[in-house]
Design a protein around this nucleic acid. Structure first.
Lengths: 140, 140
DNA sequence: TAAATAGTCAGGAATAGTTATCAATTTGGA
DNA sequence: TCCAAATTGATAACTATTCCTGACTATTTA
């Protein structure tokens, strides 16, 4: 009988660290977070396990920002807001369909392709960075 | 009198290489393309000049795919289709507004942020990679 | 014209994020 | 218990990008 393979303790910890945050972390953030409680954790293990999660379809990449890949445990379709100053990434509440099936059809026919997914990102300043830029009065 | 500063020969060549293609090239592609005609060109020069173009607002980054940043000379808002097999990037013809101002308002109020731009990407297999995957009959 | 100065440019070294290698250890099943 | 497969830490390797430093070019001054 095919038994479900359990996660190793470290794999479990890495997965939980990702699931228990909504900051869309980097691999390094996960490493830094777990290192105190798991002193013999190595950064390579974090990268290796994130790759495993992606292959399993329980974690996805939402892009590279500021040189580091960001991950998301929420596999349901939703959009993100990316702050271009501090690179904080915020989920945009669902309930608004920016893109529907007819747009997939449009892209498929225009590009003669097979569309499987899409992503929508909004860029700008988060509330925090906005007030900072107000303080400094720099019209960047 | 403030005269318009001309591009250096190399800067000019780099810019022309980007403008004269619609493949949304990487820095390395530009380097490989120009190297035969400009033997003493260095890859660092390509990166540096692309940064200049971005600051001037005549070239933009459209994201990092397969570990390499992709650039676009077309500054007008439009979406892209990205092949997840060969990473070919195709412009999606304009004339379809996926996102309008009301959506910016929605995101701004939901995230308490200041939205300045957005990007929409569609992912899937391009016509070429689609036929390849048909041949191998792999239901990957 | 020549010297002094300032600004621009480019090659190559250095850096940072990520991946690959490998020996050692752990795990799960028979 | 035994074995094969999976997992791991340490570290080297790799690759995209940035930084450093010297060379070059234009400008100013006399």
């Amino acid at each position: 009988m095919q038994t479900r393979r359990n996660f190793s303790a470290k794999r479990e910890a890495i997965y939980k660290a990702i699931v228990n945050t909504n900051i869309h972390p980097t691999a390094e953030w996960v490493y830094d977070k777990l290192k105190p409680e798991i002193p013999d954790l190595s950064l390579g293990t974090v990268y290796r396990n994130i790759t495993v999660f992606k292959e399993m379809g329980i974690v996805k990449s939402i892009g590279v920002y500021n040189g580091q890949e960001r991950y998301d445990w929420d596999m349901s379709p939703h959009s993100h807001f990316v702050c271009t100053a501090c690179f904080k990434i915020t989920d945009i509440p669902k309930g608004r369909n920016f893109v529907d099936k007819s747009m997939y059809d449009f892209v498929e026919s225009e590009c003669n392709s097979e569309v499987k997914s899409h992503s929508i990102n909004f860029f700008g300043l988060c509330s925090n960075c906005r007030s900072v830029s107000n303080l400094t009065t720099q019209s960047k």
